[in-house]
Design a protein around this nucleic acid. Structure first.
Length: 260
DNA sequence: ATGCCTTCGCCTCGAAGA
């Protein structure tokens, strides 16, 4: 059972990459972020043609999440329970579904732009609401897997130049504390069970040769509840996607789970 | 190493990303 998370930075711009990835790696579940497309324009058919069931929730130009699954997708939930009802203005950043007995939550966490900005305050508040959502609608006793672009580098091992990034957006202590508070629901950072070393990244700046220099951050995660973590046998960062032509600025991350 | 890139939209430049 392979669950992959990938911020594709535009599903329409990345469609051939995504299809190539599905054919090569055959994940059971692929959670996408930053699809940047309204639901009426989501490229459903070409993905279904690859043998996947698809659910998606997007908006024009920004945000947007989608889940592809080889098996049945059940119990889909969009957004947070405390989102404004009927919400035309609701940011489309969270999508939950039950697949193969896993309760999966696909997230595109608010970026925050700059420490101290309104968007930064919104980011911290959004992560508090995320924790409330987990408490209200999920049980840490279940096989819960929370994946996505968290826009937080959890500690300095996840940062190519910690001195430069210290206190800046993605690395500030309040952001790290907010993500730790989400994890305190009962979720572990699955990569670290297998890969404790520094220097594993999932995002690189498009400019300044950061991609070629491997000067990145780790901001994409697979978090597992205790029972799911006990079944997790490996986590793979698909670093080869970084050096392809026309890549996303993020690479996919796959967690492998043993069958019950 | 803070956009020197990229995507999207709407009206080929601006906003946003991290």
């Amino acid at each position: 059972m392979k669950i992959t998370t990938w911020n594709v930075n535009g599903i329409r711009a990345r469609l051939t990459h995504v299809i190539d990835f599905l054919r090569e790696h055959q994940p059971d579940v692929l959670c996408l972020q930053e699809t940047k497309v309204t639901d009426d324009l989501f490229p459903r058919e070409p993905l279904e043609d690859e043998g996947y069931e698809v659910t998606f929730w997007g908006e024009k130009g920004y945000n947007g999440v989608a889940i592809l699954a080889a098996n049945a997708i059940e119990d889909v939930r969009r957004g947070f329970p405390d989102d404004p009802q009927g919400g035309k203005d609701v940011e489309r950043r969270a999508l939950a579904a039950t697949i193969d007995g896993f309760r999966i939550l696909d997230l595109y966490v608010v970026n925050g732009q700059e420490v101290g900005s309104d968007k930064y305050a919104h980011k911290l508040d959004w992560m508090r609401r995320l924790r409330s959502y987990l408490d209200a609608a999920f049980s840490a006793q279940d096989d819960v897997v929370v994946v996505g672009d968290f826009n937080v580098a959890l500690d300095d091992r996840d940062v190519h130049d910690p001195a430069w990034w210290r206190g800046k957006i993605l690395c500030s202590q309040p952001e790290r504390d907010a993500m730790r508070n989400v994890m305190a629901f009962g979720l572990e950072d699955s990569l670290r069970r297998f890969r404790p070393e520094a220097g594993i990244y999932t995002w690189w700046h498009y400019s300044g040769g950061a991609v070629q220099k491997d000067a990145g951050l780790r901001i994409d995660y697979v978090l597992s509840s205790p029972s799911a973590a006990a079944r997790c046998t490996d986590v793979i960062v698909h670093d080869d996607e970084r050096l392809k032509n026309g890549p996303s600025d993020h690479v996919p991350v796959t967690a492998v789970y043993r069958e019950r």
